[in-house]
Nucleic acid binder design. Structure first.
Lengths: 145, 145
DNA sequence: TATATAGTCTATGGACTTTGTAGGCTTATA
DNA sequence: TATAAGCCTACAAAGTCCATAGACTATATA
């Protein structure tokens, strides 16, 4: 299940990517347009900024804007940042592998085998998708992409 | 992320499927062999029984056994039972569709588009996999499969 | 330089879920 | 009838998620 945080982040990024280039968007405006809780969105945008995905400007005329081209913003990276590893089980994760406590024979674990398959399929999709791809399929941003 | 409940269920089922046919396995034995918390496992097995996946016998010589052939036990069904829909977002679910509150244009939502892809890929894997497949890849049960 | 504007950051709280435990009840077997 | 085993409900600790509050800082511009 995708957390709201991750979902809000994606929606906000799509909106920011569709905004006129170089023009900062205020948190309040973004929240209103995308119908997201403003204070919560604030935290999310801050995280995205600290991650280097967004840029910010303070003071009058300030706001947020993308720090990279939408094609350089990877969806897998975003989802992992907010919701952790893609693998349903830590022992099946590539980026955050961890052994299961109760596990005896990891190589011969049926659960791990199937969950590795799920992880790979998910990663194949998310790691090959960028913000630019999302914009193409989003009506709010699509026209401008 | 797969819940422990779902993970324990899968491990227990693999063990039960590998047990001699027709011979009930006691909760306590299963818990010890698979290193699972006994009382928690009890709840899980009960759910599996109420779902029609396991059979139980009370009293001396009792325990749990599979109610269906391993090939008839679908992993997608199991995961959905314990952890809910496979889709990362309710609006991308086939089996438990629900509209997002904040959503205006569902058909033109970029988040939904990519998450539907993830759901489909996950479902393609889990819905085509059975307990019998898991046994083939599990060292504990593999030899007997 | 004063003031308004807008982001920054920390703390906190409530609701919910997850993981497990306890203990009494019911049923089957010998 | 005694014992063994599953059945079922309740509950508790811990963690997570969602969201809000409010004080602080930096910037633009009048």
């Amino acid at each position: 299940m995708l957390s709201r945080k991750a979902k809000y982040a994606l929606k906000a990024l799509i909106a920011l990517a569709a905004a006129p280039a170089g023009e900062p968007v205020r948190i309040a405006d973004l929240a209103r347009r995308e119908r997201l809780p403003a204070k919560f969105l604030e935290l999310i945008l801050l995280e995205l900024r600290n991650r280097g995905i967004l840029q910010s400007r303070k003071g009058k005329g300030g706001g947020y804007l993308l720090a990279r081209h939408p094609r350089k913003v990877n969806i897998g990276e975003l989802v992992r940042h907010f919701d952790g590893p893609l693998a349903p089980v830590p022992c099946a994760s590539q980026t955050a592998y961890a052994r299961c406590q109760d596990c005896r024979d990891e190589a011969g674990c049926g659960v791990r085998w199937i969950m590795k398959d799920v992880r790979d399929a998910t990663a194949r999709i998310l790691d090959r998708t960028t913000l630019a791809d999302l914009m193409k399929h989003d009506a709010g941003a699509g026209a401008l992409a």
